[in-house]
Amino acid sequence: MAVDDATITEVQLGGRRGGPDVATLRTDKWWKLPVTTVAVLSAFIVYATWAAFFGTSNFFYEAHNLLSPFYSPCLGSICKTQGVTSSPFLGWWQLSPALIILVFPLGFRMTCYYYRKAYYRSFWRSPVACAVQDAHSTYSGETRAPLILQNIHRYFFYFGLVFNVLLTIDAVQAFIWPGGGVHMSVGTLVLCLNASLLWLYSLSCHACRHLCGGQVRNFSKHPIRHKLWKFVTPLNAKHMQFAWMSLIVVAMTDVYVRLVASGTITDFKIF
């Protein structure tokens, strides 16, 4: 790793810069995207907080075996009161199970490379758009606590896979009547769509791409990892789309389950 010190000279700081001293000279509507991001993410945060803290009823529709993704796996004493039979853990937990569960998907999304871009731009305004002045006078990036913790993204990715498996099991179980037999309703399709999008979001993750094969120097000596890398690379190019779609669909799935569980709408049966 030798750097030829003889050729290195100090970077000269200072010197007047060209152009007028204004925050930006951009004339396009660069603020549209950050405003939209703030609106959608804020709406999701408000809804998820309500669902986690106050939406402790109607998260399970027993007649069609539909469980909200915010409450899966259903942990704690509240599950029995809602009729969820598969709640083997944490029977002593009196609060909303969502408080335990949401930490992991939330951590996965908070440390996600795409969402980092979205909230650094939109919420932290660092910078709010390209060639628009940073809103902060000092900047240390992700070199210090707490932002240095973004480097544990891959561990949230691992946890996220566990939740994807659990939500896939929920989607499969939704095809089975509580009394036996198989059925399909709009609700089962909604759960399938939710699980599929979460898988796509996870598999398109940059950490996944790296762990599949991105970390090797020599593809030709690791043909299986190269194939895995080639499989996830096109997905990775769509990571932003999967991030938004999965976020919106997971909230809509929760809304759907609550609406059918509360009797507001009927879960239309296909067969």
Binding site: A2, E142, R217, F219, S220
Partner: peptide, 23 residues
Amino acid sequence: PLDTNDRRELVREKMGLGLCNIT
């Protein structure tokens, strides 16, 4: 595949990789 240098620590510590917030 033919390079033998390991620049990961250099790029993290002295080349400011952590300053990039991937915007």
